[in-house]
Amino acid sequence: MAKITMQDLAERLGVSRFTVSRALSGGSGVSEETRQRVKKMAEQLGYIPVNSDRFRDHFKTRNILFMIRKDLLSDQHFWPMVIAGAESATKKRRLNLIISVIEPEEEIDGKLPPTFLQQNIDGALAVGEFHPTFLASLSKQKQPVVLVDVDGSEYPDTVVTHDMQGGVMATNHLIDLGHRDICFLGDTTLANSFYRRYQGFSLALSQAGLVKRQLLPLGYQGWNNSEYKERLVEAVNTITGFVCANDLFALNLIGFITDAGKKVPDDISVVGFDNINIAANSSPALTTIHVFKERMGERAIELLEWRIKSPSAPKETISIGVKFIQRSSTAYR
């Protein structure tokens, strides 16, 4: 997007460049009506005065790079919402969001997108859990980077969901319903966010004085694996409540429970996590933890803008709260 100049404003309004300059600077010789017309047009077109702090300190190229791992694009329920949030925030700032899909081999080799290396961006978002080699390459660049949905204790500024809080909420809900045999379903090695959710689950059980069952490390695959099926059959015959690492796992679990001849929530209660679109329309409708996915993208852009203005400020980690959503997949024990 090309920068808007005073001449552009003058031509749009049918006035001289001098009139635009006087109107924006508060100078005399311009009627109040014209002054307001100029200011309104400047705001609509995103004009940035050359002598303003915003022009000097904010964006130079007006390009923001959005890097996402290729495998995450297969998730049509979560990441598109994060991208939508980032796009909304960049549009408000008259910025260009350039999406770059990182191939697995590029990630492992630490190969950054050409746009990054050409230094044609003001900063970047790195979305998802990248290989340490890729993160190391990012840390050597002069442009600021904000990590999204990654525990960034060793890396730059980060925006995450308060997953541990959500894990506590989900587990306490089942405890409040009278459940005592509660299990966590999900492979915590797949995502750091899954592990944080499991930490919340474990904390809630500990605070309630309940025994922590061995977790079921199922992921997006393996539901037909004979070993896991055997463990699942055993679990659905002994467990009364499940906290799942995400909604997709929860919906798969409900299908398995139904096939096993049991009912949700009459026999077993199930809580998901993320509140993806299909959660409300499942049968039964899924009780879950709402993740503010669009806000993650918006907040990441806000944090990146702050970092561009404050390059020497301490690193920040932003944790976005979650919300408990009760539907029909849980019931009193």
Rank of each mutant, 00 (worst) to 15 (best):
M67S: 06
S329N: 06
G14E: 08
K40A: 15
K309V: 11
G123F: 03
W79P: 02
H173C: 02
A285C: 11
P80M: 06
Y198A: 06
K3V: 14
A23V: 04
I102M: 01
S21G: 11
E129Y: 12
S283N: 14
D149Q: 10
G14V: 09
Q165E: 15
I325W: 06
R333T: 10
H131T: 11
R69Y: 02
D57F: 13
S139T: 14
G166V: 01
D151V: 11
V159D: 03
F116Y: 10
A235P: 04
N192L: 15
E43G: 13
S153E: 13
K263W: 00
A84H: 10
D187P: 05
N277M: 13
L215W: 09
P113Y: 03
L303K: 03
K3I: 10
P104A: 07
N281L: 14
V291T: 11
V291N: 11
T317Y: 00
H58F: 14
I182F: 03
S282M: 08
F66Q: 00
K229T: 12
K263T: 07
F256Y: 12
N51P: 09
G209D: 05
L95P: 02
P314D: 12
S25H: 08
A42D: 05
S28L: 07
I325C: 07
K60L: 10
Q76E: 10
E32S: 13
I276A: 08
K229A: 12
S21N: 13
G219C: 05
E298G: 05
E305T: 15
R213I: 08
M296F: 09
Q143M: 14
A89P: 04
F242W: 07
A331C: 06
K309G: 10
R333F: 10
K40I: 11
R307I: 06
F256R: 04
A250E: 03
G241K: 06
L251I: 15
A285I: 09
E234N: 15
A10T: 08
Y155Q: 08
L210M: 06
V101T: 10
N225V: 02
L232R: 02
H179M: 09
T61Y: 09
S31F: 05
D71H: 11
A136T: 15
Q214N: 14
M81C: 08
Q165R: 09
A84V: 07
G261S: 08
S137R: 08
I301P: 02
F249M: 13
I268W: 02
F194M: 08
G297T: 01
K212S: 12
G272K: 01
V243T: 11
V243Y: 00
R93I: 07
F201I: 07
F78I: 15
V38F: 08
V270G: 02
S206V: 01
L138V: 14
V159G: 03
N96H: 12
E298I: 02
E103L: 11
N237Y: 13
Q326M: 09
Q214S: 13
I64K: 04
P49C: 14
S137P: 01
E103K: 08
Q207S: 09
A235K: 04
N63Q: 13
I301Q: 01
L13N: 04
N246V: 09
N63W: 08
L215K: 12
I99V: 15
D247A: 09
G27H: 12
I64Q: 02
F55K: 14
L303I: 14
V146N: 00
N63C: 13
A279M: 05
A300T: 04
S329Y: 01
